[in-house]
Every structure is written in C-alpha cells, then in structure tokens.
Simulated assay, not measured.
Amino acid sequence: MLKSHPLFRSNAPMRQLILDLLPESPPTLDNFVAGGNVETVAAFTEWLAGGLSATSFCLYGESGCGRSHLLLASGFSLIDAGLNPGLSGVTASDQLAIDNVDLLNADGQIALFALFNQIKLAGGQLLTAAIQPPAHLALREDLRTRLGSGLIYRLQPLTDAEKAEAIAAQARERALKLSPEAINYLLRHAPRDMRTLSMLVVALDQYTLEQKRPVTLPLLRELLNMETA
C-alpha cells in the first residue's frame, strides 16, 4: 500500500526517503540524462563494448554530474574509495570500477597501481571516477601516470533548463501533468541531483494517485515537507 512505502514515513528525512526508492530504478545508460555530455556518453558506451582499446577510462566532474550513475550503469565490480580508501580486499577483475579515486589513502594508491598493472596484463578494463582529472589529483606519480595514459572525459553538470526538460519528459511518460511553475518549484526546493529529481517524479505520480488530486504547488509542498513529523 502506498502509505506504507518508505517515501511516506514521516519520521525520516525527505532526501533519505527518496533515496530509499532508488533501487526500484537502477542506473542504466538508457536512463542517464546526458545533457551536454553526449560525446562523453558515446565514447563511454563504445569503450564498454570493447570498441576502444584503452585499459582505463576516467570520468571526472563536480558532485552531481552523474559520475556514480555511469559507474553503476557499467555493470563493473564497483568499489567506492570513500568507503574503502585502502581498497582492502579488492582483487583484480576483468571489469573493475573505482569511484572517488581522489579519496584513496596511501595503501589504496599502492593497491590501485598494482590492480591497474594486473588488469592491463589481463586485457581487462578499469573504470575510475574523481572530481578532477588524474593529472590534478594528489596521487602517487606512478599512479597518476597510469591513469593519465587512458581515456579521460569530463562530465558537465546539467543546466537548470536541461533538468527542467528532463523532468517534463519523465512526467509526460507517466501522463503526469506538471506545469512549468511546478517544475521550477521542484528545482528550487528539492535536492538538485538528477537521480533524486527523477525519483521525485515517481513519488509525485504515486502521491497524486493516492490523494486523487492534480499536481499543484500546495501538493508539492506537502510532498517535500514530509521530512518532519
């Protein structure tokens, strides 16, 4: 029943409640909103398919640009250096992804250097992501050189206009009527990353069906204010 869905438990923060929904819509290449990153996504897709011979592919860009989405969408074995900065227990695989490379500690940098060499020797693929390109990261020189030898692409964050267009398209797919004013309200008052905004469209669709009410600004305020009891 919708009222029992985690999004509508009023004793948890709104952002966490929305994030609880994310596994229902796992990140894929198809549901990634490319915006100004069409060329990057095309190269990434070609590399994943084996069409580009580089051992490593690095995605970099500011928080919220979609780095983690694409790493999850790759289907590679994924390690978050923010949670495991020493890469403890990580072994080489044919397809390995390391998120937040900039958060590796000294042990993790040594481990990634060894993993890179093993993956290269085996003809595998190493996918990494960070806030800056390898040359600008505070890493061991030998590791910077290895990562810098591969493909390196920047992910540009979506503009507000691109986010609004994506939200409108997702609403149309659900036959959900969202006015420009409602979309602007979401962009001003909701978390601004595209994955959370996409899940808000899902939540809004469910909430309007339960409440049997159209989308209005008061209804949007209700949904976004559910973080407090």
Rank of each mutant, 00 (worst) to 15 (best):
D160P: 07
A168C: 12
T91P: 07
L200E: 07
V201S: 02
L87G: 01
L121K: 14
R213S: 12
I79E: 07
I183D: 05
A129T: 03
L176G: 03
P180G: 05
L158V: 08
R174H: 04
V201L: 04
L104A: 00
L87K: 02
V101W: 01
Q206I: 13
L151E: 00
A169E: 15
V202Q: 14
Y207W: 14
A161L: 14
A203V: 09
P134W: 01
S88A: 14
V101P: 00
A92H: 09
I167E: 03
L197F: 01
I167C: 04
R146W: 02
D160M: 13
R154M: 10
L204I: 12
D205C: 08
A129N: 04
A114T: 15
L178E: 06
M194G: 02
Q132I: 10
R146Q: 03
A97K: 02
K177M: 14
L87C: 00
Q132L: 14
L83C: 11
V202A: 09
K177H: 14
V201A: 05
S149E: 13
L187E: 11
V90R: 00
Y185Q: 03
A81L: 02
L143W: 02
K120T: 10
A97N: 03
T208Y: 10
I167D: 01
I183S: 04
S74Q: 04
S198G: 10
N117E: 05
L104R: 02
A175R: 14
D142W: 07
S77W: 13
G82D: 04
A166H: 10
H69A: 08
L209P: 04
L96M: 05
Q156H: 15
S93M: 09
T145Q: 08
A190S: 10
A175Q: 13
A111Q: 08
L103S: 08
I98M: 01
F113L: 10
R140I: 12
R192F: 08
K163F: 07
L87P: 00
S88Q: 14
H136L: 15
A122V: 12
Q125M: 11
A182K: 05
S179T: 11
T196F: 07
L137G: 01
R146F: 03
I131G: 11
L121M: 14
R188Q: 15
I110K: 14
Q118H: 15
R213C: 06
Q170F: 15
F116M: 02
N117G: 01
L155R: 01
G124H: 03
I167Q: 03
Q206M: 12
L137A: 01
Q206T: 15
E141M: 12
A111K: 12
A175P: 11
S88I: 14
L200R: 06
L143S: 03
N105V: 05
I152C: 11
L178C: 09
L115P: 02
L151F: 03
T145L: 05
G108T: 04
L137Q: 00
A92Q: 05
A106K: 12
N184Q: 15
I152Y: 01
D193I: 09
A203Q: 13
L151G: 02
L112A: 00
L112G: 01
L147M: 01
R154G: 06
P133D: 02
A182Y: 06
L137N: 00
S74N: 04
L176R: 05
L147S: 00
L151S: 04
A111I: 07
R154F: 06
V101F: 00
